[in-house]
Design a protein around this nucleic acid. Structure first.
Lengths: 345, 345
DNA sequence: TCTTGTTCGGTAACCGGTGTCATAACCCTG
DNA sequence: CAGGGTTATGACACCGGTTACCGAACAAGA
């Protein structure tokens, strides 16, 4: 008597009701091919009637593998984490998988050990690694060792296609800055992201690419570094505007710093976009809410989250099409009101 | 031979190494009282040496209870979800618990069934319910039935203290609007939240409380309803400004709508705060990034998340102090630059 | 010395699934 | 109809813990 009335039905209950062994029920659950069609239908009917659902804990124990997708990150960009999360959850909805969120301390010395313990203990089906830790090759090696699927997200393809989801930051920044040049801007400042971040590097390179295209040259004087935070954007914006009065446009490596630059401009009494055009990157919630609404590069975070989840589910019974698709997702320029042609001098 | 070298140590390995039965090791893990101090120390030493960690899947199966905290919500407010999540994760860090995020479809007819299935299958240690579904008494009943701990978050205390974490929205709005009145504002508009939301109701009541305090009266003409989204804030702001030119201040029931009102004001060429003061609610990321930075009511989301996690962990070996504390968390007015005294007429 | 009680630790079954291997029933072939 | 190859199903151990229950060792009381 496994079912005491209050508890849920177990595989034993189903087996008894169907007059078969639990192994046969197990075969039905796992869609085994070697099964008589009548038996299958009979058992499926009973499963439907009783509303039986296999116990994930028992399965996890027997299979040494859990039906969880881990989201592992040390990313301080809340918007990004949330976007990825929403993308993953959208794919997981309706499957037997659940999402488990495991943040680790940025730059902690125990970071690798922490993630190792997480994977060893939870034995998730797979994990999604967000930048910047996704750039750490040690973690990919760790996953391979532990036999855990993984997907590394980044501003560039970091691994084999089935383990990668990436955006083309460099090309996107290139296009965004060219857009400024095409409008007539010749003195364009850059607020770069912090060193050590791949995304900051890629965006910096994209900026340089655009400058080297001409007609003007790359001017290291018009570059200030921030740490991706709002306050650093204000400071960098102020330095930029103080050092180079001829500046008619600023590209900031993320929206928060762009918002900071906007504040710096307003404090100096500049009109945006009349006196100064500003372009951000990420298209987070703040971009659309600023005044003027911020022209920015939209990073398809949601789609990337979805793609990551699909890649992890590839080969399972919950697999979805296009799972093996291209790891590269294109960022696009979202034109709002913070950019205009420079005033004729 | 349980340990094949690549795999992790199991309770059997520890038992063999210590020369005791696995039950004795289990007693050490579970801090059983009836244990010889020497035995305990010996086993603990071996556990430390081998780095043994009990397998959560096996424990979950035997205990019929998982070491997971579920975050269940149908909340479209990303900032809020993320804040709560961060609070919970902060408390969970270093414990054996992990966070599992389970969103459900807003207003879906299968919502209760979905949550029931989630709880029955995962058997989480406890779940945190976010508004607006937290306001549904059916879910609390469901949790009690299934023997799952729960905490309901809300704009008001919704349940017994150990199952509640709440903010005092009504009083906070009252104070914020009084602040406007004290500065001399007499014509204050309200952008209310959508009907059916407890938070919208509480904030509306707080607004009315402040108006009835005098010296002016509550004017239903100066109330527009939004749906908590940016665009609805623009629309409501425009209606308000068109209908009542004497308006010198607007209180919006959340920051997104306040940002919308700010846009509406700028479109009409109004100076904020010179011509119009604006106050928001939530203190999300956008509030500080707007120009001018938005005066708003800070809802202590992070602290509330922490409190919820602590309440769920109360009574476990990972329990933390103040777990049983007061369910009420005070919201406070954050004064920034979007509010000033009205110009003398 | 013989109970009696307490403390400590072991044995076996169990949680609810899965893998391996055996076996019965069936079909076809010669 | 014996022999051999499939196909469908079952028996049983196992995953790594926990609980129920039982027994040994030892101290104290009769």
């Amino acid at each position: 008597m496994d079912n005491d009335g209050s508890g849920k039905a177990t595989i034993n209950d189903i087996a008894r009701l169907a007059g078969v062994s639990k192994k046969t029920v197990s075969r039905v659950i796992n869609r085994s091919a070697l099964l008589n069609e009548d038996t299958r239908q009979n058992i499926e009917a009973i499963i439907r009637e009783t509303g039986y659902v296999p116990n994930p804990q028992a399965r996890a124990l027997a299979l040494r593998r859990n039906f969880l997708i881990g989201l592992v990150h040390d990313n301080p960009n809340a918007q990004m984490v949330l976007g990825v999360q929403q993308g993953i959850l959208g794919v997981l909805k309706g499957t037997e998988y659940e999402l488990i969120v495991h943040p680790v301390d940025r730059g902690s010395t125990t970071m690798v050990a922490d993630i190792r313990q997480f994977v060893e203990r939870q034995r998730p089906h797979g994990i999604v690694l967000l930048p910047p830790i996704s750039e750490n090759p040690e973690l990919a090696e760790l996953c391979r060792q532990l036999g855990c699927r993984y997907v590394r997200m980044g501003s560039d393809v970091l691994d084999a296609p089935e383990n990668s989801v990436a955006s083309n930051d460099r090309a996107a920044v290139h296009a965004a800055v060219r857009h400024l040049v095409d409008l007539g801007h010749r003195f364009i400042g850059l607020i770069a992201g912090p060193e050590g971040f791949r995304s900051a590097f890629e965006r910096f390179e994209g900026f340089k690419d655009a400058m080297y295209d001409g007609p003007m040259h790359f001017n290291a004087q018009a570059v200030e570094r921030g740490d991706y935070r709002f306050e650093s954007g204000i400071a960098a914006g102020e330095r930029l505007l103080a050092n180079e009065p001829r500046l008619t446009a600023i590209f900031a490596s993320n929206d928060e710093m762009a918002a900071g630059a906007l504040h710096a401009a307003k404090r100096r009494g500049l009109d945006v976009p009349g006196d100064l055009s500003i372009v951000g990157f990420d298209d987070t919630a703040i971009a659309a809410h600023l005044w003027p609404p911020l022209t920015t590069v939209r990073w398809p975070i949601l789609e990337m989250g979805r793609a990551a989840a699909r890649k992890l589910l590839a080969g399972t019974r919950d697999a979805q099409p296009e799972a093996a698709g291209d790891p590269l997702f294109l960022s696009t320029l979202i034109e709002r009101a913070s950019v205009a042609s420079p005033r004729v001098a």
